[in-house]
Design a protein around this nucleic acid. Sequence first.
RNA 1: GCCGCUAUCGUCUAGGGGACUAGGACGCCGGAUUCUCAGUCCGGAAACCCGGGUUCGAAUCCCGGUAGCGGUGCCA
Length: 421
Amino acid sequence: MLRIEDTDRERSTPENIEQILDALRWLELDWDEGPVSQAGRAERHRARVEELLSSGRAYRDPATGEDVAAWKMEHGNRGYHGEPVEDPGAAVRLRVPDEGDTVVEDEIRGEVRFPNQAADDFVIARGDGSALYNLAVAVDDAEMGITHVIRGDDHLSNTPKQLLVMEALGVERPRYAHLPLLHGPDGKKLSKRHGAASVQELRDAGYLPAAVRNYLSLLGWGTQDDTTIMSTDELIERFDLERVGRSSAIFDEQKLRWLNGRFMREMELDDYTAAVARHVGREPDERLRAACEIAQEKAQTLEEVWPLIGFLFEEPEIDEKAWRKVMKDGALPLLGEALEALRGAESFDPPELESVLGRIVAEHDLKPGKLYQPIRVAITGTSVSPGIFESLSVLGRERSVNRIEKALKRLSSDQSSGGIK
RNA sequence: GCCGCUAUCGUCUAGGGGACUAGGACGCCGGAUUCUCAGUCCGGAAACCCGGGUUCGAAUCCCGGUAGCGGUGCCA
């Protein structure tokens, strides 16, 4: 059972929660609505605090963080214990025993012992009676009947506190598994400045849910036989908490890109087209499908598809750098010949185009690029595109011819003005 | 400061006393293929944090350092 940990009243806005659920939906994860809802939660937490107060397991204490620090200066570096006061506006602290250990039985890390002597009587509720995280979580887990808590390693140190609360409350403890944390390339906790750090950003960057699931599963976990690419079904079958590692991992977007590319290339064309359509906000029509077909093996992310096929849908902007590089010595007459050949081609299928244009290459004993690059720049505006015959074919005779004519016009005026040779 | 966790190529990892001359993947470098870019295929460089101990034998077990990370809030 999934519990979204967020007890802060300010931040648990419906939008916030909806955002998280949205990310989970994109990842195609399943979940159930828990029996504990937002409604009445704060009141239930308060009731538990009162319960602990009247049983003497907790007490009110006005000490601030500074007071605690001062107390430690005096009493040496060990757990803080305050003096109960009657002040109803003071924060509530849980009594922590001064001896023994609080032991977390972790599925991944084994037995982790926390000496009670070093633990403070920590605050479980604010002066106004509202609950703090460690109390809220313990209460929620108990009330929701949580049996397994699987979460980030950053919570391992909080676990003894939650255990102490549960013990004081006399409720059963769940089993715990603390997963290694994910870090950015600088070794720090993953955050905004690391680029695509959130699931939403991964989606916007054009990654596939299946690839993200695969990649993420590989952080902190590996198969014995070194399998890296796994379908989600295979992942479900093979993933095993017992084989999860203990050290944190650095998120490497390059590997995700590679993995995503593999998934992209293996997709059925219809699924691929649908995914691209969704990403660029277009209808998955026949033309898009044809465009996707010639771009599929080139793109690593959905985001990279449009730059490859955009020329099929709108008049391309000429990349001046590419133009200068390609439109020189002999480009003009060659383009002219190509234009005639294309006009006269029997069909506009890739094989026919290849033989028609190939004839020109052979006649002049050219390096193929000498002919194909100028054509490419003329019809796509750039020097990078899908295969030239496929590109021409999908673009169609009329538009191809138009664009080459246009390039020819510019080329001849450039040359006569001596601007570019 | 105190408490806790962690430590194998740049990165993700496999390996948990002898099979290790330490395996795979991404990335990087070189080559092949090709109309560009990709892709694909071949090849290469690249790691057991340091110091002790246990043992015939340690990447592997133990202890100590060091480093990184997390917690230590009337944050979650």
